[in-house]
């Protein structure tokens, strides 16, 4: 796989490390060469990246205020008891 021609499967396997910039320079070069000629893999990379940020956006829930109040009270009671 360190040779210059990657298949789409090879390319997709590398995407997580590529986005984390933890790929060696040879693999980065090979992947970028592949992406220049492969529209499906470009589409895959774009949607993979957007999936990653979307999961983060959807997952960023806040603790409900009422729950926070309950937790604070519980802990304060415990402090008082201790």
């Amino acid at each position: 796989m360190t040779q210059s021609r990657l298949t789409c499967k090879d390319a997709i396997d590398l995407l997580a490390d590529y986005l984390e910039t933890s790929l060696g320079p040879d693999l980065v070069a090979a992947l970028e060469r592949h992406l220049q000629d492969c529209r499906p893999c470009v589409a895959y990379l774009n949607t993979y990246k957007r999936t990653r940020t979307l999961a983060g956006q959807v997952g960023r829930v806040e603790m409900p205020e009422e729950m926070r109040r309950r937790l604070r009270q519980l802990l304060l009671d415990r402090l008082g008891a201790g």
Binding site: T7, K9, P40, A43, N46, T47
Partner: peptide
């Protein structure tokens, strides 16, 4: 993936980019 390493699926699917 197909045997040659390309993604399986019809063209509109493998090119779908909703990003």
């Amino acid at each position: 993936f197909l045997e040659d390493g390309h993604r399986a699926g019809d063209r509109s699917y493998v090119l779908a980019d909703w990003s």
